[in-house]
Design a protein around this nucleic acid. Sequence first.
DNA 1: GTGAAAGCGCTAACAC
DNA 2: GTGTTAGCGCTTTCAC
Lengths: 333, 333
Amino acid sequence: MNRQRVRLIDVAEAAGVSRATASRVLSGSPRHVDPVLAERVWAVARRIGYRPHVSARALRTGQTGTIGIVVPTLTNPYFVALAEAFAGESRDRGADLLIADSRNDVESEAAHLRRLTDGRVDAIAIVPVSYEDSGAALVEARDAVPLAQVDRRTRDGNTAAIVLDNITGVRLLIEHLREAGRERIAYVGAETASSSGAERLAAFTDIAGEHAPVTVVSEFSTSAGREAARHLLDSTTDIDAIVCGADVLAVGVHSTLQRSGVSLPGDIALVSFDDSELLELTDPPITSLSPPVGEIARRTTELLMGEGDAWREPSVERLVPGLAIRESTQPHR
Amino acid sequence: MNRQRVRLIDVAEAAGVSRATASRVLSGSPRHVDPVLAERVWAVARRIGYRPHVSARALRTGQTGTIGIVVPTLTNPYFVALAEAFAGESRDRGADLLIADSRNDVESEAAHLRRLTDGRVDAIAIVPVSYEDSGAALVEARDAVPLAQVDRRTRDGNTAAIVLDNITGVRLLIEHLREAGRERIAYVGAETASSSGAERLAAFTDIAGEHAPVTVVSEFSTSAGREAARHLLDSTTDIDAIVCGADVLAVGVHSTLQRSGVSLPGDIALVSFDDSELLELTDPPITSLSPPVGEIARRTTELLMGEGDAWREPSVERLVPGLAIRESTQPHR
DNA sequence: GTGAAAGCGCTAACAC
DNA sequence: GTGTTAGCGCTTTCAC
């Protein structure tokens, strides 16, 4: 048998007060209640195991105490790290986090946004799947609930966005490579459907020079990374370093280089972007930018849950990443 | 401005019917409504963008249309795969999935269970963190809502459990290794805090023989795998194959072997358990059992959402895994 | 400082 | 087949 729920009225009766008072003690404004009564209510509530019914509370207050995060895929450890950072941040604010996985699919992303805005969450942080195609669903959602874009942006999402400072990031990587004696640097990125992909590519061309070789593959995946590396090796270009636009690509590139007998970091140095755990698994481990996920989560949550409508203003806040140096960029000796 | 929610009454008025009729059309029992009216209601609802308020509906019906899954960590790609399988299954049944991450922490797991049972979900599937210590929270939760254990069990969780058939699994792995000419097989597993860990270890000793070397590390992590491999190499035991109790361990073992100049699969063959994407990233890719995540999700959801109280009966259903053969077990030539 | 009572948006008896 | 109405559990005026 399912045990019957303990309701507020059960607490109130057992404590000899009205529902109103019990409610004030347990949630509303405890300071407007006689401390003696308050303690009695608490004691009873604890004893009989009262826990408020979230739907009832949400229906009454219009607040769910939950924030939602929508990521392109949980298959990418970087987004898992991001989600966990948001989980920590929510917890600190006494809120819950609801994680949704778009499976890299705009339709599925739109469906999630619709469901989340059906009174399920107070605010939404979203890493949009597509720069071009995610916008419509975002706009609809942001009319229902505070919403901010994270890590990537859409063309017409029209909300605040908290992203990586990709230009500084690329500069950090290239400077690091040059200090390690690398001069002929190539770039491997996925198609520019995401804003971060496009920014990284543009920054690379800008800083490394127009003639630096660039390989763009069609998706963020390890096999795409493998392909890209094969392509680079086949082309005659003589390179001594590769910058990868995402960790999953880097791991693929690494794998192909290894198999082709290219020595890392002897022949080619390798760097990547997201600093997920994947990069420590390879041999040698891969140097990477380390995105400030904690700070991203903090700033975004602040924006969404704080006073005011700052999230409503289309804007871009760029957070500067650190650099996690590993063996894949040991200097030439 | 947040657009005002469209409520049922707005639809009803615009369609010239009562809330009851509108409700019947949009959710309850459409067949008891005049088809002409019904179509009118639908048309209006679509036009003005009606979407039911989940809290209000949940409060009234006692049903949330959401099922919850609690996993030890999303850092382990196997649990991500499991969660995605449940997401698919829920979607097929018109339900939502709420993913919670225990961060390998019993306290945090208990907190999640408490929150989920505060009227947030209709049923819970959980991969418990600890065989010994997760039970209490499970029991409390299963008094509030249908709950089933998945992939791992607790000592006193007292619900149905859908797990891998670890004995058959270990047998498959060892047979495969023996067919590939391996005879001196070692095992690397994490501490037996989880039921699956314990079962795998026991099955290994049973099948490979009492004297087969076993290394037990303290946690499921890549660095623990590295340690274990170092330990195996240091000990004088002469082995030609290693069975790992989890993918993250296997990747760590692989990394240490590589660095120590051990040839795979030449000197040592390597196999693992969860068949997550990690295993395809290594060089050589690692052979693994492939757990039937889809089937696990299907059976569990069936049990939870179906008629009856089958989930309430302490029971264990063991599903047989497949075998994904990769280069790490190429036969001796 | 405390209680009575209204009502959040929805569905399900119950009447017609 | 359709409408009227009560009420899910909670918070919050409003009156005292």
